[in-house]
Amino acid sequence: MSLENFIPLDQLCTHYKVEMSFFTSLNDYGLIEITTIEESCFVHKEKTGEIEKMIRMHQELNINFEGIDTIFNLLKKIETLQSQLINTQNRLRVYED
């Protein structure tokens, strides 16, 4: 497995000044997926934006892990509803013209 698409968790801990237990808790709640390769823990590079949001929610807004999970579920639901609305509007335009 190629490591170029992964970031070591210890680097993220150092960069964001958080404990490894924070990432373990995020993994336990299903918010991130930790991949273990040769006894080192990694996360996918594409998830760094979401991870940064989670860290900011937890540190700056004092939101617990259950709250972060709820917020991300609601954001996904909003995204799905917005997509459905756009599709419906596009289908309605066919009948309006």
Rank of each mutant, 00 (worst) to 15 (best):
S40K: 15
S40L: 14
M54D: 03
H58A: 03
F23V: 04
L12Y: 02
H44T: 05
S21L: 14
E79W: 00
T36H: 12
I71Q: 07
T36N: 15
M20P: 07
R93P: 00
I34Y: 01
I71N: 06
N27W: 01
E52H: 11
I32S: 10
Q59A: 07
E50W: 07
F65E: 06
E50N: 14
L31I: 01
G30C: 04
V43N: 06
S25R: 13
P8A: 11
E39V: 05
L31H: 00
I32G: 06
G30E: 06
S2T: 09
V43Q: 04
N73K: 15
T80V: 14
L92K: 01
I37A: 09
S40T: 08
Y16T: 00
E39M: 10
T36S: 15
S83T: 11
I7V: 13
N73L: 14
I32K: 07
F65D: 07
E38Y: 06
V94N: 10
D10W: 09
N64I: 10
Y29K: 11
I37R: 13
E33R: 07
N64M: 08
C13I: 01
N5M: 08
K47Q: 15
E60W: 00
I63S: 04
I37H: 12
T48C: 12
Q84I: 10
E52P: 07
H44V: 12
T88W: 00
S21W: 09
V43E: 09
I78D: 08
Y16V: 01
I68G: 01
S25N: 12
E4M: 05
N64R: 03
D97V: 08
I32A: 09
D28Y: 10
N90C: 04
E66Q: 11
T35I: 15
F6G: 01
N87G: 06
L74G: 00
E52S: 13
K77W: 03
Q84M: 13
N27V: 02
I86T: 15
L74P: 04
R56L: 13
M54L: 04
V94C: 07
F72D: 03
